[in-house]
Design a protein around this nucleic acid. Structure first.
Length: 108
DNA sequence: TCTATGACTCCGG
DNA sequence: CCCGGAGCCATAG
């Protein structure tokens, strides 16, 4: 499929997430125009999990919960990466999600 | 073409 | 906020 496939759009946005910031599947999906497709965002990352150019660890669900943690290598890699960027994570959940929340629409 | 799947989200209780 | 149920949509087989 052409470069404008859903996956390409998602990857395009996720790559632009700045360090120390996080966003939700819903926000990304909304930026794509289909805010109902939040599930697809995670599905794409799952398929591209071997591509380290994509900071998938900065993508969490609307609660700030690290839902994709289990899909990462090891058991706490995702949390380590977030903490390394200055984001505090407790019990697989981002603290002060709104504080670190990044709006994809701003960059675009 | 149809069915199954999923790193989600919304809604009502 | 937690729980159960329903909706949504792209991709794979």
């Amino acid at each position: 499929m052409p470069t404008d496939s859903f996956q390409q759009k998602v990857l395009q946005i996720v790559k632009q997430i700045p360090p120390g910031k996080v966003t939700t599947y819903g926000h990304i999906a909304a930026c794509l125009g289909n805010k109902r497709s939040a599930r697809m965002v995670g599905w794409v990352l799952n398929s591209k999990k071997y591509n380290r150019d994509i900071p998938a660890h900065r993508v969490v669900n609307r609660k700030g919960l690290l839902t994709g943690k289990m899909h990462f290598e090891g058991s706490n890699l995702m949390q380590e990466l977030l903490e390394s960027e200055g984001i505090n994570v407790v019990n697989n959940q981002v603290v002060d999600l709104e504080k670190h929340l990044w709006n994809p629409a701003e960059t675009l």
